[in-house]
Computed example of a mutant assay.
Amino acid sequence: MNKYMVMVSLAALLTACGEKAEKAAEAPAAAPAQTDVAAQQAAPASAAPAVDKAALVESAKGAVQALGGTLKGELEAAMKAGGPVEAMGICHTKAPEIAKAVSAEKGMEVSRVSLKNRNPVMGQANEWQTAVLNDFEAKKAAGEDPATIAYAEVVNNEFRFMKAIPTAAVCLKCHGTELSPAVTAKLTELYPQDKATGYKEGDLRGAFVVVKNLAQ
Rank of each mutant, 00 (worst) to 15 (best):
P120S: 02
A142F: 14
Q41V: 08
D135C: 04
I149Y: 08
M122G: 08
F136R: 00
Q40V: 14
K72F: 09
A125K: 06
E127T: 12
V154A: 14
S46Y: 00
P44E: 10
A101K: 04
L75N: 06
A142P: 05
N117S: 10
A81N: 05
A152K: 07
V132P: 00
A39K: 05
A47C: 02
E137K: 15
G73R: 02
A60M: 05
T35Y: 01
G68D: 13
V85P: 00
P120C: 01
A55L: 04
S59F: 02
E109Q: 13
G68Y: 12
A47W: 02
A152I: 04
A39L: 12
A63C: 09
E144S: 15
G89S: 06
E19P: 00
V121T: 14
K116M: 12
A25M: 03
L115F: 06
G69R: 00
E22G: 01
T70L: 06
N117H: 11
Q40C: 10
V113L: 11
N119Y: 07
A99G: 15
A50D: 08
A63W: 01
E109Y: 06
A29G: 11
A48V: 07
G62K: 09
A33M: 13
A25E: 12
G68Q: 06
K20Q: 02
E86Y: 03
C91V: 08
A47P: 00
P120K: 04
A142I: 13
A150I: 05
L71W: 01
V154Q: 05
V57Q: 09
A47D: 13
Q124V: 14
E58Q: 07
A101G: 01
L67S: 10
P32G: 11
K94I: 09
T70D: 02
V110G: 09
L115N: 08
E58D: 14
A24P: 01
P32A: 11
A60L: 10
E137P: 04
E19A: 14
A42L: 11
E26L: 07
A55H: 13
A30R: 11
W128R: 09
P96D: 12
V51G: 13
A81F: 10
E22W: 05
R118G: 14
N126F: 04
P120Q: 07
V154H: 03
K20A: 11
P44D: 14
G123I: 01
A99P: 09
V155R: 05
A138K: 15
L75M: 12
K139H: 10
G89A: 06
N126I: 11
T70F: 01
K139S: 12
M79F: 15
I98H: 02
Q40F: 14
E109M: 14
H92Q: 07
A50V: 11
I90P: 05
E109H: 13
A95I: 01
T148D: 14
V37Y: 12
P146H: 07
A63G: 14
A66I: 02
T35L: 07
A54I: 07
A81S: 10
G123E: 01
A125H: 06
A25H: 10
E22M: 03
E97P: 04
A104V: 09
A38I: 04
K94E: 15
P28G: 06
G107E: 14
V110E: 00
C91M: 05
A95T: 08
